[in-house]
């Protein structure tokens, strides 16, 4: 009979035993519910009584829930994995794993899947709350599915960032610090680059550059590195009746077909995740000759 990955079984047992996992899930849902309730209270009086009022409430609730969930996934998933391999080193169980018949791939994959299983639980837990927006209208199934896919892909990317630092460093604290630091740099750095680039290009005589095909692709590529920008622009594209998988950008000379930002984000996130996963596997090896991490005579 095919057996589950031993690391996955062990980590799931440990993670779901005790109150910690349930407390985290409760806090996560309470924050979401609290924000949703406050928002509903704030906007329900302002939308008026016309036919589109419910639609506007539905859309606002949906985007708010998706955004808060995305923030939480960005912060929680790297923490779930940053302690995984570094924790084995701290508990002095790392050597026992490496000296067993487990391959580095099994160790890294088991750690990733156990963290993603919990992240998936967090994502699935928001679906009932997201479905509230259906009651008001204005949101279709496509939007919900893209939001769920975007959350999941974000969880994969940020989990592998945590995993990489966990394999690289010796302490959970250090790995968590570097993982969160990387996430913050990505989330703040990319918008900063976009703003600076827009200022430079907007004020220069290079405005014809903005219409070039390569610039369109490059700008979409940079924007697609950021989950909030990618999913936000997709949502606005969909609300204006666009295709969920691609969009047509009209330039002065031609129409350029580009993949929808969420598609591009998914592809890029999965490529980066694969690279980080491979790097983590490479790091989980017995120390090479003369370069043992812990100098033990």
């Amino acid at each position: 009979m095919l057996e589950l990955n031993p690391i996955l079984v062990k980590d799931l047992r440990s993670r779901m035993r005790g109150a910690r996992a349930y407390i985290l899930l409760t806090i996560y849902l309470l924050i979401l519910a609290g924000v949703t309730l406050l928002l509903y209270a704030a906007i329900s009086g302002d939308v008026g009584n016309d036919l589109n009022a419910g639609r506007r409430i539905g859309q606002t609730l949906f985007f708010t829930i998706a955004t808060v969930a995305l923030i939480e996934v960005c912060l929680i998933t790297p923490v779930l994995t940053s302690g995984s391999i570094a924790g084995e080193k701290e508990r002095q169980t790392y050597d026992l794993l490496v000296a067993s018949l487990l391959t580095p791939w099994q160790i890294v994959w088991g750690k990733l899947v156990s963290a993603l299983a919990f992240a998936s639980l967090l994502i699935v837990a928001i679906v009932p709350m997201m479905s509230l927006s259906f009651l008001f209208g204005g949101v279709g199934l496509t939007e919900v599915l893209i939001a769920i896919a975007g959350l999941f892909v974000t969880a994969v990317l940020y989990a592998t960032i945590g995993l990489f630092w966990s394999a690289m460093l010796q302490s959970s604290l250090g790995a968590t610090g570097f993982a969160i630091g990387t996430v913050i740099v990505l989330l703040l750095g990319i918008p900063f680059v976009i703003v600076i680039a827009s200022l430079i290009l907007g004020s220069s005589a290079l405005s014809n550059l903005l219409d070039s095909v390569w610039f369109i692709y490059l700008s979409r590529f940079v924007a697609a590195l950021h989950p909030f920008i990618a999913l936000g622009t997709t949502a606005s594209h969909l609300s204006s009746g666009g295709n969920p998988f691609f969009e047509i950008v009209r330039t002065g000379t031609a129409n350029v077909i580009v993949p929808s930002p969420w598609v591009l984000f998914t592809i890029l996130a999965l490529i980066f995740s694969a690279v980080l996963l491979a790097a983590s596997v490479r790091l989980v090896q017995p120390a090479p000759s003369g370069a043992d991490r812990r100098k033990r005579p």
Binding site: E3, P6, V9, K10, S14, G18, R91, Q92, T93, L97
Partner: peptide, 20 residues
């Protein structure tokens, strides 16, 4: 002795048995 939190004696052996 490497220790795992929240693990019983039999689970400890079971985990390493799976690993082999």
């Amino acid at each position: 002795f490497g220790v795992y939190d929240n693990m019983k004696s039999w689970e400890y052996l079971d985990f390493f048995g799976r690993s082999y």
